[in-house]
């Protein structure tokens, strides 16, 4: 895309250079985080004042911070995060796909109205109800349980919306043929719709995963017992303490950031499709 008349090589250089500087500035904190996690603790602040290139270039590379981190309570928090995100994706996909199936394939009165209501109510940001919900969840004995951490994340309006759009694109003839052969609605859902919907399921799964992996407020409210801490909460708590090790802090930050990146990277083309299909430009 090109605006205006400028198509000179000079202009291209300016544009590319500006972009390079901006992106470098954006990447600097990440580079600092990663290299600081890979150097001995006492080196972390040594080269900041006066600033030298050594600030992001360790003299001595070491995995010691990671070793110590995974021996500490943080390991438990990281495992909790994986369990909670995994359960949320597994339960959430089934729940949301079932709802999407009812709202796209099955015929009943008021279907469009129910669909609108479901999506709108799920679009209410979760933070808006998290605090009142936490009083309620305590009365249901959900505090310090995996159920308490997982359940608020399982049903997701965006995920229902995406799956419904995809189900609508599956040819009606397929399910009509299956009906003639005597298949029930559940069989059609499980044997035809789910297997055909892999891209939409991956996109929805990513949404559910990111919701839980990013979660901070809800885990803080519902898990008071530190053995039920999720990784971001555990990291945040540590920063407030006096005797924390910066190296391990950076190592923890890298670990928590790297896991979604490792999951997202191979699946990024599904995410891109997902974001595009929800990008408010339908």
């Amino acid at each position: 895309m090109l605006l205006g008349g400028g198509n000179s090589p000079g202009r291209a250089i300016v544009v590319n250079l500006t972009l390079a500087v901006v992106i470098l500035a954006f990447m600097a904190p990440i580079v600092w985080m990663v290299t600081s996690s890979l150097r001995p603790n006492e080196e972390i602040f040594r080269y900041l004042s006066p600033l030298s290139v050594r600030a992001i270039l360790p003299e001595e590379w070491t995995l010691e911070n990671y070793r110590l981190l995974f021996e500490s309570a943080f390991r438990r928090a990281l495992i909790n995060s994986l369990i909670v995100a995994g359960l949320t994706v597994a339960i959430g996909l089934i729940l949301n796909a079932m709802a999407a199936y009812a709202l796209s394939v099955l015929r009943f009165k008021l279907r469009e109205l129910v669909f609108t209501l479901v999506v709108i109510s799920f679009l209410i940001p979760f933070e808006g109800v998290a605090i009142p919900l936490s009083f309620l969840a305590r009365s249901w004995d959900l505090q310090n349980t995996y159920a308490g951490l997982v359940l608020p994340g399982v049903a997701n309006g965006l995920s229902i919306f995406l799956l419904r759009q995809f189900f609508l694109s599956i040819p009606v003839e397929l399910r009509e043929a299956a009906r003639v052969d005597g298949a029930g609605w559940w069989t059609i859902f499980w044997r035809i719709y789910l297997p055909l919907s892999r891209p939409a399921l991956i996109g929805s799964g990513l949404i559910l995963f990111m919701f839980q992996w990013q979660a901070y407020l809800w885990p803080l409210l519902i898990a008071s017992d530190s053995s039920m801490d999720l990784a971001p909460v555990a990291l945040g708590k540590q920063l407030g303490q006096f005797d924390f090790e910066f190296g391990q802090m950076f190592a923890g930050s890298v670990a928590v950031s790297l896991i979604p990146a490792l999951i997202l990277f191979p699946l990024r083309r599904f995410l891109e499709q997902t974001i595009k299909s929800t990008g408010g430009k339908e």
Partner: peptide
Amino acid sequence: AGGQAVTAILFLVPALLVLVAFRLWPAALS
């Protein structure tokens, strides 16, 4: 078509339960 309404409700119930319990009910209580 009447038969589909019952099936639809069954398919919707789990998501609707979560919606009511974890979104609408706490919002109303709030």
